[in-house]
Amino acid sequence: MTKSLLIISRQAPWSGPGAKEALDIVLAGGAFDLPIGLLFMDDGTFQLVPEQNAAALQQKNLTANLQALAMFGVEDLYACRHSLNERGISPAGLAVADVQPLSAEEVRAVIDRYDQVITL
């Protein structure tokens, strides 16, 4: 029986490798058909801000990479509503489509639903 995996991505996008590493795990899991979910929390929600410019730092374009999630079969995308609110990020018009904002109660239920959780 394949185990399901939830990745909690809580690092901001441009200052370190954490956000990209979390995404790489998710994409690898998706490529192998693993039931996988991705939850953006804390500074990880900054990854969802629209119209960011990776080129300004000559970095790989994480925003473009995130668009590939659907192609890799990763459709369970969540964001912590508290983290979004705290940072003034509007849940409408996020850089990634179909991300569901969740209350703390709903985050707990999502964590319960997966067999394994990795927080990065």
Partner: peptide, 18 residues
């Protein structure tokens, strides 16, 4: 085109899907 859009190379499954 895939690379232009997503800036990464697809594994087999996403290549098939795309």
């Amino acid at each position: 085109r895939f690379y232009q859009e997503f800036e990464l190379s697809p594994a087999t499954r996403p290549l098939i899907k795309y």
